[in-house]
Amino acid sequence: MKPPQAFSMGAGFKIKTKDGGGGAPAPPSGVKIEHRIGIQASSDAIWELIYDLSTWKDWNPLYVEAEGQVRIGSALALKMVLPGDEPMVIRPTVLEWVPYEQLHWRLRLMGGLVTTTRYIEIEQLGPASCVVSNGEIFGGLLGPYVAKRMGRKVWRGFEAMNQALKDAAEQRWRAEGGAPTSDA
């Protein structure tokens, strides 16, 4: 039997089914939606914005309010606004975090019929050059259905968040005397 194939519905929009087979620990299975963006700033400048949840309201159009601490097992309270939808408060639990590299959390919806693993990962390419992967894996019995139904809105939310993160991180990097940026 052939494994499911990934498909692209637009630049940077990917939905991929993981089979989780062999070798290393299996990644979460389900449907993956991800947006990636290049940011010309240090991973420090990017991480400071991600880590400080209290400032998300100042720059983040997807999560307009955020409370909690970035600690493994800690509960967060996030007011999420997907494009075209009413705001919704979600209460995920921090799964993992590595300073200057990644933040992962898990959310269970509909009595566990939908389980999502959300991630924001920073890949440093150089002193002032990073790629940020912003995505979510939809698992559980109804996860693939929810991902298919809401995928475009979720991706647009990730895209808006990434662009706002890029703008804020590059502005912070410039203010701290860093260069170059994508505005140069």
Rank of each mutant, 00 (worst) to 15 (best):
I39W: 04
V146P: 00
G140N: 10
Q124K: 15
Q124C: 06
Q102S: 15
E101M: 11
L49C: 12
V132E: 07
L78A: 02
I137K: 02
L142S: 04
P25H: 06
W97L: 12
G38S: 13
R156M: 08
E136S: 08
K32F: 04
R149E: 09
P127E: 14
P61L: 04
G143A: 04
F138Y: 15
K79D: 02
L49M: 11
I39V: 15
R149N: 07
N162L: 13
N162S: 15
C130L: 07
D44G: 10
L78W: 02
D85R: 06
G73K: 11
E86D: 11
T17V: 13
V89R: 05
V131N: 08
A160L: 13
R152D: 07
G84Q: 11
P127V: 06
F138K: 01
G38N: 11
W97E: 02
M110D: 02
P92H: 09
V146E: 01
P87Y: 07
M80E: 13
P92G: 05
L62S: 08
N60S: 07
P127H: 12
A128C: 14
E86F: 00
L53M: 14
K16D: 12
E67K: 15
R152Y: 06
L95N: 05
A26D: 06
G112V: 06
S54T: 13
R106F: 03
Q69D: 15
I39N: 07
E34Y: 06
A24C: 07
V81F: 03
G139P: 01
N134C: 10
G22H: 08
Y63H: 11
N60V: 03
K148E: 06
P27W: 12
V98G: 03
L82I: 06
R152H: 07
S133Y: 13
A24T: 10
L95R: 12
P25T: 10
G135T: 12
G143R: 00
L125N: 12
G84V: 02
I72M: 10
I122P: 00
V114W: 00
